[in-house]
């Protein structure tokens, strides 16, 4: 457990020192959202309708970008070998990297969501549901992304291929997350979506560390 937090601390420190793409991914999150009003017109009613989905999509792409190098930088310079030889089980390493990723990527996405709601013209009363769906959904995005990110170590290249593999797996989270918001706005209530969304987290928490550590070991083979 002590080692777990040491590793989380190190990863966050690396993000702060600018060694990973995570910071840039947050900037991308802000940038991507601007594309929606610029491409679909600045009609306020339209923007309000698409706001939830647009913010969710920007969040998804921001995670996608930063997940690509979740394991690969440590894999390529041999750090991951050293860490696993230090007596940490691979599953714990995966979980700690996921936690560090969420703290530096998912959490800022949640915290920045009110600002984005503001510029997208989402009504105040729906801010909470957007924040909650992001709060529940982003950890799942990180965990789901861990396995394809680990597979990209085994290939030795990432980028488009990681995205190609990752996006279909992330779609249910996107559908439920933005679905909750539009259901809430249309008056149907987003609770059902929220429950389904929160069910994804424990499942991915169980499956993901196992498959991701298998993928990293495959990379070493």
């Amino acid at each position: 457990m002590r080692l777990f937090f040491k590793l989380v601390y190190r990863d966050i420190n690396l993000v702060i020192k600018g060694a990973s793409d995570t910071g840039a991914a947050i900037l991308f999150y802000l940038l991507a959202i601007i594309m929606f009003p610029l491409s679909s017109g600045t009609d306020t009613n339209l923007l309000t309708t698409i706001a939830g989905g647009a913010i969710w999509m920007a969040a998804l792409f921001a995670s996608l970008l930063s997940l690509d190098r979740l394991f690969r930088s440590d894999f390529e310079d041999g750090s991951l070998e050293q860490i696993v030889l230090s007596g940490m089980s691979m599953e714990i390493i995966v979980l700690s990297k996921c936690l560090a990723h969420w703290l530096t990527n998912g959490l800022p996405i949640v915290l920045l969501s009110p600002i984005l709601s503001l510029i997208m013209g989402l009504d105040y009363e729906y801010w909470w549901i957007l924040a909650i769906t992001l709060l529940i959904g982003t950890p799942s995005l990180t965990l789901i992304g861990a396995t394809p990110a680990a597979l990209s170590c085994a290939i030795g290249k990432g980028g488009v291929l990681t995205a190609l593999v990752l996006l279909p797996l992330m779609l249910p989270v996107l559908i439920l997350g933005s679905g909750a918001i539009s259901a809430e706005i249309s008056g149907l209530g987003g609770k059902g979506h929220l429950y389904a969304l929160s069910a994804i987290f424990p499942i991915s928490l169980l499956v993901s560390p196992f498959l991701a550590s298998r993928s990293i070991r495959l990379g070493w083979e």
């Binding site: 420190n13 690396l14 020192k17 600018g18 060694a19 390529e76 310079d77 041999g78 750090s79 070998e81 050293q82 696993v84 030889l85 230090s86 007596g87 940490m88 089980s89 070991r217 070493w220």
Partner: peptide, 28 residues
């Protein structure tokens, strides 16, 4: 096996890769 055993390090490994993070200081 050292790469699976999870209590204390069994081996000290010097491989092809340095496992050094350029953006951190040597001390870190």
């Amino acid at each position: 096996l050292p790469a699976y055993y999870s209590e204390k390090p069994l081996i000290s490994w010097l491989g092809h890769f340095d496992a050094i993070k350029g953006s951190l200081t040597v001390r870190e």
